[in-house]
Each structure stands twice: as structure tokens, then as C-alpha cells.
Write a protein that binds this DNA or RNA. Structure first.
Lengths: 212, 212
DNA sequence: TAACTAACGTACTGGTTCGTACATTAGTGG
DNA sequence: CCACTAATGTACGAACCAGTACGTTAGTTA
């Protein structure tokens, strides 16, 4: 069986990045081992330094790739045909599903925050532009529509609403271990999935609908 | 100046624990260095092993101590004299203040979750009992009062409400770095503190007040 | 005050881990 | 088909780091 050419720079690079993403998400930056990443690829440690330069640059590349994947996924939401309330519910639900489906991304973000965002802060501007646009801009439009129809409060800011939605979704996945140990409730139990999804949408909609 | 006895087991132990808590919160488990902790105490590395046994046990002790401090602080909330809505607001605000005042605790919890709660899961039951009681039990009572007075929805669960409040408070502190880098907004800017505090209380109250 | 033990310090080790020097092969342009 | 370069592999080193062997001193008790 011929699995392709013996030399394929793009493929080797991609494979390293994929394995590294998993390893960093799994072990954290300091906990991740370059040798372990190398062992789990079809190539050697030498190639990591050849393509990425070092452990830290590899980590930054993995973080960047994770954000890029997310950005791509977020652009697929279509709520133009929905009323403001239904549109907000949909955005909350899509965000919810999205976080549940990407625990590794949430772990990488947590890890980066443990490092006080020092790596993402050093990323070139070009890699961050566009990361915010899709979800928040959409939220802003819907909020304005809702306000125009007298459905939503005037003082609600799109970025704040996005923050509240993210907080709920991220916490449920990121903090499920300590929460489970202390309170004895599994936040990602499939049987409770719909309950939390509905709760989030209810909470956001009721906040927006309430008088100031 | 006589700073006390040259030998004081309790003091030495306490000092190690204090420095270790700061170092683990700062660097994470794998990133923390036993030598560095020792260097920042008035004693030596030998004493860490003498009193705690090893790096992992020291980390567990630091985590346990952090939770103990929190538990003590949470028991000081008094809302018996308030109506259900005001009581809920007060709990949300106290939790908010509390998280803002203890970023190191939040960091330790994040770190423990990166490790999938493996250490907290192995803690003796006795150390976890009582950790949940104060805040959530109180919430349960208020919810029931509010329900009795027809103010709150029937389907609201105390632990879920606690989760939603925690999520908001934790996210704002824990994820402020990546959020700030991507959206250009500092979530812990003192000028926005009151805004977020009010927003959280509004959100929880409106969720509870809305019809199902 | 002598014997004893809890508390503490020094110096070291064995394994780990990031990174690199050096060698080699596959593909490619002339 | 021959030189040249991009891509890859091997073997190793130097620093780091958790943990410990061994020795010492302070306080305590008989």
C-alpha cells in the first residue's frame, strides 16, 4: 500500500501541528513534552524544530490554528429569516453546541489564560482581526432589530451579551471537573444537555426582554 | 530585632503553603518549581518534603487551603431580612465581589480543571463536605420563598442558578486575557465593574422572574 | 545535664527534556 | 545525469529539576 510520497513538507507540518494541538490541550504548555509530540507523529523531533523553531512557537501555532477553525465554523450561522427573539435563541444554541463539540479548543483557551494571554497578545494583528467579527456583529444587528420592535431593552451591548453566552458555555465545559467533585452534578451529562441549552437561551432572552 | 524562635514547625509549614499557593496559581502545576518555592521561603527544599512529602501533595494542600478560605468567606452572607428578589441580587453581587477579590483562587481552580480534577477527586470526602452547603442551600431557600410568593418560576433549580452566577463571575476573571486580546475590551476594568455587577444581577433576576 | 527527638540545612544524584551538531536522502533545475 | 537544495534522521549534550542521603542543631524530658 502506497500511502503517498516519502517527502511531503505540507503533510509533515500539518501532522506535527495536529498532534501538538492535542498534546498541548491535554497537558498544558509546561506539561506537554516535545519528545512525546514527536513520538506520536510519523516524523522526528528534528522536524518540529525545522518547521516551527521551538516548543513555544509550536504552541502559538497550535493556538492560532484552533482559533482559525473556530472562526470558520462561526461564519455558518444564518438567522436573517428569524425574528429577534428566535434569532437570539438560535445564536445562543449554536454557541452552546459549538463549545460542547470543541472541548480541546476550550482547554487551549484556558491554558492560554493561565499564561495570562502572553502568546495571543504577541500574535500579529492580522491573525486576530476577523476573530471577533462573525458572532458579535451578528448579535449587534439582531439587538438593534429587537430594539426597533420594542422587544429588547435599550442598554444591552452586543459584546456583553456575547460574553454572557460564552461564560455559560465555557464554564459548563471547562469547570465541569471541580464543579462535579464539589456538587456531585455532571454538567455535561447528555441527559441534562437540553435542559442547559434551554436555560441559557431563556436567561439571555429574559435579560434582553426585561425592562431596565 | 528578634523575629521569633528559630524553630517553629507551624510557622514554617504555613509559610511553605502560602508561597506554594502563589507559585502554583502563578505557574500551574507542571510550570511550578519546587526549588523556586523553597527559595521564596525562609527555609529550604528539604522542609517541603519533610512537611508535605512531595510536589503533588503540596499542590493538593494548596488547593485544599484555597477552598477552605473560600468556604469561610461564603458563610458570612446574610439575606434573611431581604425579599426574594433583593436577596438574589445580593447573593449575585457577593459572589461577584468575591471572585474579583480572589483571582488566585480562580486560577487554582482553572489549573485543577486543566488536570481534569484528578486531585480534587482524590481528596478525602471530609474535605469536600461543606464546600457546597453555604451558597447553594441559601439559594434554595430564597428560590422557594420567591416561588411561594409567585415571584419566581417553578422550574428553577438552586444549583443551576449557582452555576450560572459562577459562570459569569469566573469567566470575567479567568478568561479576561484572551477576551481582551480578541475583542479589545478589558472585562475587569474598574470603570466597568459596576456595569457587569448590575448586569449579572439583572440577568439572574429576569431569568427567575420570567414565565416558563 | 545527658539523652533524645523534632526541626532544619547541605550537597548531591539520577532521570528527564529542550535543543542541536552532524549525517543522509529525495527530489529538482540546469 | 549531475549538482544542488529541501527535507529528514540519528545521536548526543547541557541544563534542569524532583527527590534524597547524610549531617547538624535546637529544644525537651528524664
Amino acid at each position: 500500500m502506497d500511502t503517498g510520497r516519502r517527502r511531503d513538507a505540507a503533510r509533515t507540518r500539518a501532522e506535527i501541528l495536529e498532534v501538538a494541538s492535542a498534546e498541548f490541550a491535554d497537558q498544558g504548555y509546561a506539561g506537554a513534552r516535545v519528545d512525546e509530540i514527536a513520538a506520536r507523529t510519523r516524523t522526528t523531533k528534528r522536524m518540529i524544530y525545522y518547521y516551527f523553531g521551538g516548543k513555544e512557537q509550536l504552541y502559538v501555532a497550535a493556538l492560532q490554528a484552533a482559533y482559525a477553525r473556530i472562526r470558520a465554523a462561526e461564519q455558518e450561522v444564518d438567522v436573517a429569516h428569524l425574528g429577534p427573539v428566535a434569532a437570539i435563541r438560535r445564536i445562543a444554541e449554536v454557541t452552546f453546541d459549538h463549545h460542547e463539540a470543541n472541548p480541546d479548543f476550550i482547554r487551549l483557551v484556558s491554558i492560554e489564560n493561565i499564561h495570562r494571554g502572553e502568546h495571543i497578545a504577541r500574535m500579529p494583528e492580522a491573525d486576530l482581526v476577523g476573530l471577533n467579527t462573525p458572532a458579535v456583529d451578528l448579535l449587534g444587528e439582531i439587538l438593534e432589530r429587537g430594539r426597533g420592535q420594542g422587544l429588547f431593552r435599550a442598554g444591552a451591548d452586543a459584546l456583553d451579551v456575547h460574553m454572557a453566552i460564552s461564560a455559560f458555555c465555557v464554564f459548563r465545559v471547562a469547570n465541569r471537573h471541580t464543579f462535579g467533585a464539589i456538587f456531585g452534578r455532571d454538567l455535561v451529562d447528555p441527559d441534562r444537555r437540553l435542559h442547559y441549552r434551554t436555560m441559557l437561551a431563556d436567561m439571555i432572552v429574559s435579560y434582553l426582554s426585561a425592562a431596565e
